[in-house]
Design a protein around this nucleic acid. Sequence first.
DNA 1: GGCGCCCGAATTGCATGCAGTTTGTGCCGC
DNA 2: GCGGCACAAACTGCATGCAATTCGGGCGCC
Lengths: 252, 252
Amino acid sequence: MAGRAGTGKTAESTDRVSVICRALRRAIIEQALEPGAKLPEDSLGERFGVSRTIARHALGQLAAEGLVELRRNRIAVVATPSWQEARDAFDIRIELERLVVRQLAGRLTKAQIAELTAHVDAEDRARDGTDAVSIRLATEFHILLAHMTNSPILVRYVSEVAYRCCLTLSLYSRPHSSECAINEHRAIIAALVKGDAAKAMELMHGHLDSVATRALVAPTPQRGRDLLDILAPYADETGSERVVKLPKAARR
Amino acid sequence: MAGRAGTGKTAESTDRVSVICRALRRAIIEQALEPGAKLPEDSLGERFGVSRTIARHALGQLAAEGLVELRRNRIAVVATPSWQEARDAFDIRIELERLVVRQLAGRLTKAQIAELTAHVDAEDRARDGTDAVSIRLATEFHILLAHMTNSPILVRYVSEVAYRCCLTLSLYSRPHSSECAINEHRAIIAALVKGDAAKAMELMHGHLDSVATRALVAPTPQRGRDLLDILAPYADETGSERVVKLPKAARR
DNA sequence: GGCGCCCGAATTGCATGCAGTTTGTGCCGC
DNA sequence: GCGGCACAAACTGCATGCAATTCGGGCGCC
């Protein structure tokens, strides 16, 4: 009924490279690594017990996924998407995940339903824990759904874009915890089980839209963008004390 | 009105790596490199005047895009997506490109309209030329549209998935030329200019759907899959002359 | 005290070398 | 002839070395 081919691994599982990728992805998603954080090749290599070659390759992968920014001759850093990029990412994500639930509606096996339910239960349990874990679990719920389509391409795109959205969350969103209403996850599962594709798509749309708007309330120039623009309004305070130290405070 | 940020380059433009990527992408899209074609690192390096390190990195990039298959300790090959993967790619492509035209409807500048028209004219002119060029131009039309959204992420995904679709075309489609009805391109432009988002989305959907179904008529086990399965029906011709030489004729 | 310059340390860009794996081919027994 | 084995060539996986560039701190000058 829901059978597909699915190689599942493209370049993913070159062993050591993918280990590093996974570790970094997770660190980023849990906000242990903030946007802008530096990722020197040999520190990475040393940390994971490999040479720079491998670390470099891993960074290349992550850059291709949009999680890391690679500038020539410069230390790689965790990507800091602009507000508009964040908005675009969410727009794409909405379309992709609507596709996911459309394909999934009424086709979930009992085992899959159980797996989803278990996951959401885990999300509930993690409520008391750190935000980091909640966010990770919420994201993984969406990726888990994508996996169930058995479409490797869809999995890849949903994963990527979900990770990117996480990144923006840590940039533009206040730490108001539990950004993903767990009940909405449950509602989506229910619609899928019932086989109501339209309902599931609508729920998913609403769910993601609310996450997006809750996070990206406004272009909030305060965070994440350019520092010089931020300070522009203050530039004409000529004769005052406490002048900002530009070169020192420039991003961490 | 249609202003956006847009860095445009992620890891793309590490110079030599991206040169190789572009060359290979183009070779693949023009079917000069068939699915399954071998891509040894040092041949590539020699051809482009760089060391294996660079060639390797380029292959990594392309693998991340799904154009190349990287198997451990084996020569990299041009990817050969399964029929189902091809179908999935087209499904995703439809959603993404609907998003593109939705964002673009009524927002095209005069210059952009001119550029699009010029491109379609070029497609028309290329009708007499080789199929390779037609296919490339048709694909580039879609990528050009994506570019006009000023959303780097959207550009990346549309490009990737469009390339993948090209790949499947060369696998599963007969060489019936002009796979992309040029008139449909013109119609889409017209709808965009008129600002009729719904119409443009519908046209784009129909356009891609027709391309997909024209190409992917059926699971066609004849091409692209497994050779042994293909030859199975012929296997019982026991006592005849001219037995197929398996190991020699294997692809290429 | 603040600002800019300069130089050493840190870091990347890239090629090459070596070890391990795969692939292809010729040879031998049947 | 035909199938299998073994060896050699080809190729990848990875680390390391060297040159070029950037980063950061200290020093002198204003």
